[in-house]
Design a protein around this nucleic acid. Structure first.
Length: 278
DNA sequence: AGACAGGGGAGTG
DNA sequence: CACTCCCCTGTC
């Protein structure tokens, strides 16, 4: 176990914004599965406590070494995003395993968070290894090569994504995925898009959530609606233009802006406290 | 009951 | 670009 003091960190916002899906909350504790790790973590004010992984893992996983106040200052371009930053301050990008991240977001297409969670849980239970923490049982995420039975992948309710998952399982080399970290953004993205089932949105999620490309600005339907409303006078704009806008307007940490806008649009935009009423 | 869309993507024209 | 289909499931 371990405890560390944290600054500018909010565990709940960080785990609740759809970056990772294998999480269970039990009272104050979050039980988190990430690749081969299974740990629990809770936050009380400016302190986090964790069991099952070491301090070094926690600091890296939650990007606690990134200067969040500086990043938020950089992306705080107007009163709209400022409102979101005020509400969700402490949300940080998570550094995931690229393979698990890739499969997670292939599963996300035309789906929603509860259903993505159910697919990943089923895949882990079927192809992963059992792992326990404090008497609680769970499963590791199966590496490439292990998700090798089409029928069982279908049984995980993955639907039309099953063939993408099987093909990725048979062809992806984790060393190749990791090598993309040092490539320029566009090159790394084009490499990812060669994988069937991976388009612009999924590629940007993998770049942002696992490969350290903070400028990636994934455009999903929520972000599209929100950006159109706030910055394009609610006119219909192509996903390409939304993404270009995001990068140009918010800069090197556009991905952080995307997460803060996403949280606000998903949780608050339709509840009477619209960003436009700022 | 039946249509519809949900944090997309591929294939076609 | 604009369209259609893909599996499935909750929702209206």
């Amino acid at each position: 176990m371990g405890k560390i003091k944290v600054k500018d960190f909010n565990l709940t916002h960080t785990l609740d914004c759809g970056q990772i899906f294998r999480i269970n909350r039990v009272n104050d504790w979050y039980f988190v599965n990430a690749q081969d790790n299974f740990f629990k973590i809770k936050q009380i004010r400016n302190e986090i406590e964790f069991h099952g992984v070491d301090k070094e893992f926690v600091v890296h996983f939650f990007s606690l070494n990134e200067n969040l106040p500086k990043i938020l200052k950089e992306i705080n371009k107007d009163k709209y995003i400022e409102k979101s930053i005020d509400k969700y301050r402490g949300l940080r990008l998570i550094k995931q395993d690229p393979w698990e991240c890739l499969i997670s977001f292939i599963c996300s297409s035309a789906s929603n968070i509860p259903r993505i969670k159910s697919k990943l849980k089923a895949l882990s239970e079927c192809f992963g290894k059992k792992i326990t923490l404090d008497g609680v049982c769970n499963y590791t995420f199966p590496p490439p090569g292990k998700i090798n039975d089409y029928g069982k992948i279908m049984d995980a309710k993955t639907g039309f994504r099953a063939r993408y998952i099987l093909e990725a399982n048979n062809t992806i080399d984790t060393k190749h995925l990791n090598s993309l970290r040092t490539q320029p953004y566009n090159l790394a993205k084009n490499e990812l898009k060669k994988i069937n089932g991976v388009g612009d949105k999924v590629a940007d999620c993998v770049l942002l959530f696992s490969l350290g490309f903070n400028q990636a600005f994934p455009v999903d339907t929520w972000i599209k609606k929100t950006v159109q409303l706030l910055y394009f006078d609610n006119n219909n704009v192509s996903n390409d233009r939304i993404r270009e806008f995001g990068l140009d307007y918010f800069g090197a940490h556009a991905g952080y802006a995307q997460q803060y806008l996403f949280m606000y649009s998903r949780n608050d935009l339709n509840k009477g406290s619209s960003l436009l009423m700022a």
